[in-house]
Design a protein around this nucleic acid. Structure first.
Lengths: 215, 215
DNA sequence: GTCTATAGCTTGATAGAC
DNA sequence: GTCTATCAAGCTATAGAC
């Protein structure tokens, strides 16, 4: 969609997404956002009713799309494996690949959204309420699929494994640039292909190792 | 140390640590901090020179202690394995255990510090500069040990593996409570023993899986 | 729907008495 | 070292013209 044809609401959502991702909720002012969007300050309250509702709207806008794509891919890998359960690798792929594919091919808006998601997921202040609201149903479905894929695994181990999995993902999405410094430029935190090649294998192996551990 | 014998500087560091961990840098005001500490507002500038230097001082106070303990344990596991390199499991343990042991036994200050570390590590705004300054030397030593423990692994894989490892750790340290909700109370994100039993096995298995992946 | 103007408050920082 | 008092700037939100 051309820049000029975006509505005021979309301009505000795009600008807020970008700036909240970089500096968090408290580090971004409505003046920053309306300045970036090129619209008047008062329109935030007209269209969204305040700063917090704007923040929530940013999170929800792409959340539904992401959930839908994830569930579509999960159904796909389940069907391909039926009547056996889908493999751990396939389930993990259905969870990560929508994000990694959007990141690689779907423009800067999705990029900022994922950085923001990383920020929210790690925030004691926002993480529990906002992440749960948008993602719980989908995530529970994936955890069920993971449990099915790991015969003999204790559910507790899979819940903890999901926690590690999402931590590994979200730090990668935050793209702090720390990987670049630590590796002296050998790795780049913006290299989605390198991430995609490694995140799945790491996590699938980790989950399997966890499932086999002695209690 | 008794509460009354703490110096003003220590009171400010303790209060800042607690509040920055909960709401981040921009979400915490100097009035919040001096109120929590029970000291006058103007003393932040007298003792630290401003809000940002106070934030940096909070991060550095316990960083040196953590680095020292980590390196001590790394030397220990290396010596125990010599002349062979220490195992992946042992290196990963030397990296995680100081944090998990401090978390379980060393009081609320360390607890807040680790939550803050999780926040900083995932922050595009602060992550690169502040984490690198305090932790790069130690982390590079651990990555060297991981490479030695994984014969045939490409260094790129180990750098990415370190990224996943620290992501899994820091999301766990953030204690967002999301795990509790997702698991309907079966797991608690504050359960350090449960975390300690699972994080090492998950990460060691993940690193080994990554090292064996086809290029 | 958009804009101007501003209310009402909080922020980080500091000058200066003690 | 500590405290009072205050400043200039920034903040969210809103009333009201257009």
């Amino acid at each position: 969609m051309a820049r000029s044809k975006r509505t005021t609401k979309e301009k505000l959502l795009d600008a807020a997404e970008k700036l909240f991702a970089r500096r968090g909720f408290h580090g971004t002012s409505l003046r920053d956002i309306t300045g970036e969007a090129g619209v008047d300050l008062a329109l935030v309250n007209y269209h969204f009713g305040g700063k917090k509702p704007l923040f929530a709207a940013v999170l929800e806008r792409r959340g539904a799309v992401l959930n839908e794509e994830r569930l579509r891919r999960l159904a796909e890998v389940r069907q391909a494996a039926a009547p056996r359960p889908a493999s751990t690798e396939a389930v993990v792929g259905a969870f990560f690949d929508p994000i990694l594919d959007f990141l690689a091919h779907a423009g800067p808006g999705w990029h900022s959204y994922f950085t923001l998601l990383a920020w929210v997921n790690n925030s004691p202040e926002w993480g529990r309420r906002l992440m749960s609201k948008t993602f719980n149903d989908t995530v529970r479905e994936f955890i069920r699929a993971l449990i099915d894929s790991l015969p003999g695994a204790a559910p507790e181990d899979v819940f903890w494994g999901y926690n590690f999995l999402t931590g590994a993902l979200t730090l990668s999405l935050a793209e702090t640039g720390r990987l670049d410094i630590l590796s002296d430029g050998l790795c780049r935190s913006t290299d989605v292909a390198a991430l995609k090649a490694r995140l799945g294998p790491f996590v699938a192996a980790g989950l399997k190792g966890l499932a086999q551990r002695q209690a």
